[in-house]
Nucleic acid binder design. Structure first.
Length: 1194
RNA sequence: GGGCGACUAGCUCAGUUGGUUAGAGCGCGUGGAUCACACCCACGAGGUCAUAGGUUCGAGUCCUAUGUCGCCCACCA
């Protein structure tokens, strides 16, 4: 490297960033490998893997800047530091993006393209965007160990997924169940909840009469347990003896979706309507008593009145119906003529509608739950294409009456015909108008239908307790029953009785816990995982507390295929058929690994058969190969017959082909994206492969140190990582979860690509530089406040800015803005979201924001301060110096430095990035540049101490050289040290510029430090240099110098203020007299040359007792009274003094009254009281001076 | 419907157990081409801390209510 200092006048990030990037690469500076450092000296962060859906925006830039700050900081502090990078395959989102593109460009659906081809295309997309994302991260300076880059769908992650699925399957934590999915009838696919939007449309509430059947007619639909689920038994005493109305001929139900009645299987009534009303009333009265606002009271009163009204209008009938339901009575479902039972269930709300509710398990999540509780069949009436399906009654026969509806579009024509037929039958009681929120598919813009389908679930609740467990945890029934497992019966069998009984699950460390959710709850409540800011623990715990089972199957093609193979087999009394089953399976060769687990389901009941059948044995055959068979236990063909479905889960999906040969088909679905993301903290470290784990240091880096993410995925991702980490490895995956704020656009909306308000960080880097980007990001990282980021388009034609808000329309539905018009030159331009053709045609406007000027300006300031230092630091000596005898300004800046570093690290340790940055900025810009460098320029630039050459007219004697001897060498040594430490401190935030300047500093002043006080070890690269230590610099702390310097600053500012107000030309020297408290006079006099130099003072007198000079401008700041001679006139001053006198008297009065308040003196902290007294004394001194001035002037 | 957060200078935001005269950056005003930096320097003006009550010797800070905005979760026969 050259030893001459050649730095541009303005910092140019473009040249520096590329050069520094190459340098880090060349030194392999981001590489992490296990070594002998103990656990407390290791630091690991796994990146929240960005979706390969598209390029990164500023939200990602924010998230990753914060991580890199932590990573670089710890690396410099001597931690063995790993930042693990990678990307996420983001199942639904990515497939949707690619599908959409194919639809737009080729007009084809995925079904036309085919599974294999679609997946191939998505891999292409992934390759393209993964490359883009990684390059964006690198341009930002993220110091990830790129050699470890992973992808959630790569081979290692797939192994981790299979292993986890297998373990959970084997432990009974994964089951198959029915669930209502959001069905997009246009695209014929299930869509996720977050792909829905709601539209309010005008609809109707149809009240329909279902005829009551005679008492001797039973419904064929009634299942085993007539009397319903626990807790819903009718209260025998309630309502008895009341005047009961005559038995009704009809039950009235109300619905917004009359076409679903084709699938009704029951009508529910509350098991204790009177009790329920009473309970609600007393709850309301309690609320009323516990003091609410007038508005609330009115609302509660209204509710109470409604209940009272309901008691007379509906209650008698509901009680009657309750009794009829208890007696097993039946109603006739019109149109299809299906006798359906009246049942008792708390889902029926006596306050709503008629108080009775129709139950359609196949078309409503709540009804589904009711159906589960009462063992009702589910009659599907919806065909995948959105028409009425052929209706099959539970006994397997086609319903003869439904033919006239079959094939009709479900919610339009079928509805119309149902309503017309009901009306024709005279069963339509009334129609009400009603506004209804209807879910629409974001992708096809058509209304979605709930559609019953088979799904895989992970059991989150306490094992063997299921729904009841959740209820005991305080969650109301109607909130937890959405995903009722169909295997519940089997589960109860399995956990019933004696030695077979299992309780809870076993985690990776061998400990036992009630269930998966409970394990994750314990990790946080015990403090092993800390969520910061702490308030987010609430949403984490609340969500886990519900212990809702996790639906993990997705009807997609892009993702991890579910590692389950299935086959339907019929077993009859025929010995041969039975033999086929055993034979086929007996001869499956599994190879060396043990690794299959199976569930066998009885197709008629939908329930798994006796757990004995589930046992699988494998043994070594004579030829040494491992062979597996299903142990048929004590069964014989007489016991086992009918249709059965075998589900075999394989640990190693490669083995699937053996099962395929036996006619087993792999489940077509893929796993929820979060199933692979949840394994990220250890799958990236090599789990479950032992060799890979060793190579990547699983034992060394796991558990990781911190997770940095934003709040919307606390439940989806964070909680599940804790669960799988604990289950698979027995340790929580991280110690800290830092939840940062969000970057919003100028309107306060979340940035997202789909909204069109996202900003590519590379655009910002192009214009302002990566360090400027990072600086601004860190500056915005406050604890609670989401930060607004006004974004402008930079016109490619004229360079003017057009605010994004003027272009991107506000609305619920996302709109991609691909082109816009420049405000200034009126020419159109393309945005980053435009396609290539449009971009080429119109020119692309970059996104920018003036916010980043803050960062750019800081970079430039740092660059120039360093440039000044470097041009003057050649030949800086490295000699022993005694800090205590350095000039005040040197002692002051060193004290400030040590203060700053401690505060900076204190803030970072608490993830207070913005606060840390402010501390560093204030030190560098205010203390170091504006004061220290300005002050020491004469010393540094070789003209000797202040006052030695140029200040011929100073009347104050310079301090004696024996005391301070402010030599040039000392100043240079101090400046070199401060610059060195500042660069180290700022490096985590702005790595490129600091690394570049560090190289210059190294070349010019290879040895820096304060011998005997602070001696940093030399390093070629700043990225691996030692961070300024927290401890060991106590010698630099110097409260006395800090206090003296503060006085000097106050005096300097005061004089500048007075000069400015009186329009004194900058170069003109003024004569100043300062009155100060006697005990401070000596110290001030000794440093008077500083004030003289910085405030342009010729003669400076400092005295405890001075009289007001003629025509002086005066100012009282703190305990100082400053007079600048001959720059004002006495008349003007008189006016000013009078004003100030009045103000001072007011303040004194206020202080006196406070101090004469006995309560204050007695109760406030003594220090606070003393501070008030000091302040009063100061004011009183000021008052005396002011009065003297007044006397002199008057 | 439940939960969480925000409301402080024209704008974007700090303000850590309640305690001097509430801060910063940008913007604004005045002055400055001085040999590190005009992406700069010096100085200044700007605030009834959303509103109303309360607790306290003392409230931007704690409590209650109201309003506005945002986020998360649930739900709407």
């Amino acid at each position: 490297m050259s030893d001459r200092v050649e730095l541009d006048k303005v910092y140019n990030p473009k040249t520096v960033e590329g050069e520094i990037c190459a340098l880090w690469q060349q030194h392999d500076a981001f590489r992490a490998a296990p070594d002998e450092r103990p656990p407390e000296r290791r630091y690991c962060i796994v990146i929240p893997p960005p979706n390969v859906t598209g390029a990164l925006h500023l939200g990602h830039a924010f998230n990753n800047t914060l991580q890199d700050i932590l990573v670089r900081w710890h690396r410099m502090r001597g931690f063995n530091t790993l930042w693990q990078p990678g990307t996420d395959h983001a199942g639904i989102a990515t497939q949707a993006v690619v599908e959409k593109r194919i639809r737009e460009t080729e007009g084809k659906t995925r079904h036309q393209i085919g599974r294999e081809e679609l997946v191939r295309r998505i891999w292409e997309w992934k390759d393209q965007y993964e490359a883009r994302i990684l390059s964006q991260l690198k341009l930002m300076g993220c110091s990830c160990d790129w050699s470890r880059t992973r992808f959630t769908l790569d081979e290692g992650c797939s192994r981790a997924v299979q292993e986890t699925f297998f373990r959970w399957f084997k432990a009974g934590l994964i089951y198959r169940g029915k669930r209502l999915v959001n069905w997009d009838t246009a695209l014929q696919t299930a869509v996720a909840d977050d792909e829905l939007y709601y539209d309010t449309i005008k609809g109707h509430f149809w009240h329909i009469r279902y005829p009551v059947m005679a008492a001797n007619v039973a419904s064929p639909l009634v299942g085993g347990a007539r009397a319903a689920a626990p807790g819903t038994r009718p209260d025998a005493t309630s309502g008895a003896g009341n005047a009961i109305p005559e038995e009704p001929t009809h039950v009235v139900i109300a619905t917004t979706r009359p076409e679903t009645m084709l699938g009704d299987v029951a009508v529910a009534v509350h098991p204790d309507p009177e009790g329920e009303l009473s309970r609600r009333a007393s709850a309301l009265r309690a609320e009323l008593a516990s003091a609410a606002s007038a508005k609330d009271r009115a609302a509660i009163d209204a509710k109470l009145e409604a209940i009272a009204e309901r008691r007379t209008s509906h209650l008698p009938l509901l009680i009657k119906l309750r009794d009829m339901a208890a007696a097993g009575r039946t109603v006739m479902l019109p149109l299809v003529n299906r006798p359906i039972p009246l049942i008792l269930d708390e889902w029926a709300d006596p306050m709503l509608g008629s108080g009775c509710v129709k139950i359609t398990p196949a078309h409503d999540p709540n009804d589904f739950a009711v159906g589960e509780r009462h063992k009702l069949p589910k009659i599907n009436v919806l065909a995948p294409e959105g028409t009425v399906a052929p209706i099959v009654e539970p006994d397997g026969t086609r319903n003869p009456n439904s033919a006239r509806y079959e094939g009709l579009p479900f919610s339009t024509e079928a509805r119309a015909r149902v309503v017309a037929d009901i009306e024709a039958a005279g069963l339509l009681e009334k129609i009400e108008d009603r506004e209804i929120e209807i879910a629409h598919s974001d992708r096809s813009k058509t209304p979605i239908e709930p559609y019953l389908s088979d799904q895989w679930f992970v059991r989150m609740g306490d094992l063997g307790r299921g729904i009841e467990g959740a209820q005991r945890a305080g969650v109301p029934r109607r909130e937890v029953t959405k995903f009722t497992p169909i295997f519940d019966e089997w589960e109860r069998e399995r956990t019933k009785g004696g030695a077979e009984r299992t309780s809870g699950i076993t985690l990776g460390d061998g400990s036992n816990v009630a269930g998966l959710a409970q394990a994750a709850i314990d990790a946080v409540t015990s403090g092993r995982v800390k969520i910061l800011p702490e308030r987010y623990t609430k949403s984490y715990l609340d969500w886990l507390g519900e212990k809702r089972d996790w639906c993990i199957s997705r009807q997609l093609w892009w993702g991890h295929r579910i590692p389950v193979w299935r086959k339907r087999l019929r077993i009859s009394n025929d010995e041969d058929a039975f033999e086929i089953v055993t034979h086929g399976l007996d001869h499956v060769i599994l190879g060396e690994t043990e690794g299959a687990s199976a569930v066998v389901v009885d197709c008629t009941t939908g329930q798994p058969v006796d757990p004995r059948l589930r046992r699988i044995a494998d043994y070594l055959a004579a030829d040494g190969q491992r062979v597996m068979e299903i142990d048929l236990g004590g069964f014989n063909s007489g016991e086992l017959r009918g249709d059965f479905e075998f589900f075999v889960c394989l640990r190693d999906a490669e083995r699937g082909k053996h099962w395929y040969e036996l006619g087993f088909m792999q489940d077509p679905d893929v796993l929820d994206t979060w199933f692979s993301s949840q394994l990220w903290p250890f799958s990236t470290l090599g789990w479950p492969d032992p060799m890979d784990s060793k190579r990547r240091g699983l034992d060394y880096y796991y558990p990781t140190s911190a997770l940095v993410t934003s709040r919307e995925i606390i439940t989806l991702w964070v909680a599940r990582m804790v669960i799988s980490g604990l289950y698979n490895l027995g340790k929580e995956p991280f110690h800290h979860v830092y939840i940062h704020t969000k970057i919003l656009d100028a309107r306060g909306e979340t940035m997202s690509k789909s909204k069109g308000n996202g900003v590519d960080p590379v655009d910002i880097i192009d214009v302002y530089g990566a360090d400027a980007l990072r600086y601004t990001m860190a500056d915005m990282a406050t604890e609670t406040q989401d930060a607004r980021m006004p974004v402008d388009y930079l016109c490619p034609h004229c360079g003017a800015l057009t605010p994004q808000t003027s272009v991107v329309p506000k609305g619920k539905q996302p709109i991609d803005v691909k082109k816009a018009t420049c405000r200034a030159c009126k020419k159109p331009f393309a945005t980053v979201w435009a396609d290539d053709a449009l971009k080429a045609d119109l020119g692309v406007a970059r996104d920018t924001s003036e916010k980043f000027e803050i960062g750019r300006n800081f970079c430039n300031k740092l660059w120039n301060a360093a440039r000044f230092a470097l041009t003057n630091l050649a030949g800086t000596p490295y000699e022993r110096l005694d800090v205590r005898s350095l000039p005040t300004e040197d002692r002051w800046i060193l004290a400030r430095l040590s203060q700053t570093i401690a505060a900076f690290q204190g803030c970072l340790a608490q993830y207070r990035f913005s606060a840390a940055l402010k501390v560093a900025r204030d030190f560098f810009w205010d203390s170091l540049c504006d004061w220290y460098i300005e002050l020491t320029k004469p010393r540094i630039q070789g003209s000797g101490p202040v006052g030695a050459v140029s200040d011929r007219d100073l009347s104050v004697a310079r301090p004696s050289r024996s005391e301070t001897a402010p030599t040039s060498g000392e100043a240079k040594q101090v400046l070199a040290f401060c610059l060195d430490q500042t660069l180290r401190m700022l490096h985590p935030i702005m790595p490129f510029i600091t690394e570049r300047l560090w190289r210059e500093l190294n070349a010019l002043v290879p040895v820096r430090g304060l011998p005997g006080v602070a001696q940093p070890t030399p390093s070629e690269l700043l990225i691996t240099a030692e961070f300024p230590p927290l401890e060991g610099w106590s010698k630099l702390n110097d409260p006395v110098s800090l206090a003296i310097f503060e006085d000097l600053q106050t005096a300097t500012r005061g004089i500048r203020d007075l000069r400015s107000k009186s329009n004194v030309p900058p170069r003109e020297r003024v004569t100043v007299t300062i009155k100060s408290a006697p005990e401070r006079v000596a110290a001030l006099r000794a440093q008077a040359h500083i004030v003289q130099h910085l405030a342009g003072v010729g003669t400076l007198a400092i005295d405890p007792a001075v009289t007001r000079p003629k025509n002086a401008a005066s100012l009282h700041v703190g305990a100082l009274h400053i007079y600048v001679h001959e720059i004002s006139d006495d008349a003007r001053e008189l006016q000013r003094v009078r004003t100030e006198l009045a103000e001072t008297e007011k303040q004194i009065a206020s202080k006196r009254s406070k101090l004469s308040n006995e309560n204050f003196v007695a109760r406030a902290d003594p220090e606070v009281v003393q501070a008030e007294r000091d302040r009063l004394a100061e004011l009183e001194t000021r008052l005396i001076t002011l009065r003297e001035s007044l006397a002199e002037l008057a």
